[in-house]
Amino acid sequence: MATVAEKNVLIAVIDVSQFYELSMSSEVQSQVLSFQHCIDQITVFINSYLLSSHCNSVAVILCHQLGSTLVYPVPNQAELDEAHPELNKGKYEPIGLMNGLLRERINQFMLSISENIPALVSSSTLLSGALSMSLCYAQRCSREATAGETIKPRLLVIRASTDAASQHIATMNCIFAAQKQNIPIDCCALWEDSSFMQQATDITGGIYIKIPEPAGLLQFLLWVFLPDIKSRSSLQLPQSSVVDYRASCFCDQKLVDTGFVCSVCLAIFCKFTPICPVCQAHFKLPSLPQLKSKKKGKSSSKSKAKQ
């Protein structure tokens, strides 16, 4: 009998940081997407993904300022099956079980966060951590695959906060690791554009979309992110705008067209500095003195010739 040759794994990274703040301020709640509503929509999306093919499987990672957790799958699935028989009533069993589990684990996670609110002050979502974690999970999936089975992982990041400059290197490392392993990273930005994720999707060949209306999240998830990678080429998907690959200089974070790069530590500066502030390397003065020395060399050789 022919075995299943390909197995798709969708790793959904859900950024829950902003939701928490939003749920605290009740005034805005009515206008924007509520947390529960959002999780429901994502669950519907995951369900339809699982139902669209029997080779599809899902992992869900929640990501927050305090850390990230893998909420699904859980390590001891069999025990949980027995513990919650009531969850399965009237539904396709695995899906019903998964939905219940997801809700329960997400609630647990949010409760654990609410105990540590003071620590949240002025920190940003640990996206790089969640990405590292999901890549390790993807690696584990392909390691655990049986012979003759290929695992096709892909990442879907549901992003709800802004980028943190401190995570730049770590995030870039994740992006290159994903590119090396042919894992596409898709991103669905809810409120603000994320330049890290724009680069990630462009480099790894995923789709980036910023939703104009966060309440319609499910529509976008189903239309854009449900089809598998193969069918993407035959679909008319939203074109991402041109990604800005200009470098930002280390001195005042401006985007530069031309910059000076330290040959030792590759730090980027917008103007010439004699000593590198990052690695303390001493530089020779640029182009102008070199020209002089060339002339000198010529003139000295000429003078030598005359002598």
């Binding site: 690959y245 200009r246 530069v256 031309t258 790069v261 001493h282 530089f283 020779k284």
Partner: peptide
Amino acid sequence: TETALIKMGFPQHKT
């Protein structure tokens, strides 16, 4: 080994 500050350009992909 000499260290230097190298001038580099960061072009954008344009159509």
